[in-house]
């Protein structure tokens, strides 16, 4: 009786695990499919796809083109300064 209950519990756990795994796989398939929501909601995603923008970095140093962006700001400041002097 005890062994049967233990086996049932174990079976339930594994069923829960596989159900969770299926949900996780479905999430990966959905987000990885390249689907974008229609209308305004998907506009940023479509822009990211078109311009190959990685939106996942957590910290500034993880952004691949951070040095280029920083340099861009420096250039913008310089341009403004020179315009002001003129």
């Amino acid at each position: 009786m005890k062994l049967e209950r233990k086996n049932n519990n174990l079976l339930k756990r594994w069923i829960r695990f596989f159900a969770g795994l299926i949900i996780l796989v479905l999430m990966v398939v959905f987000f990885g499919s390249g689907y974008t929501p229609p209308g305004a909601f998907g506009e940023v995603l479509r822009h990211n796809q078109t311009c190959s923008i990685d939106a996942s970095p957590l910290f500034y140093s993880e952004v691949e083109n951070m040095a280029v962006l920083e340099e861009g700001v420096r250039e913008l400041i310089e341009i403004k300064k020179s315009l002001k002097e003129q």
């Binding site: 923008i53 990685d54 970095p57 957590l58 910290f59 993880e62 920083e70 700001v73 913008l76």
Partner: peptide, 26 residues
Amino acid sequence: DSTGAVVAAGSMLGPTAEKVAAVVKM
């Protein structure tokens, strides 16, 4: 909150905005 999302959102407004948004976050 995260820098990647800032760059993506900034880029929607144009190249200057992308740079400014990323540097403010940095």
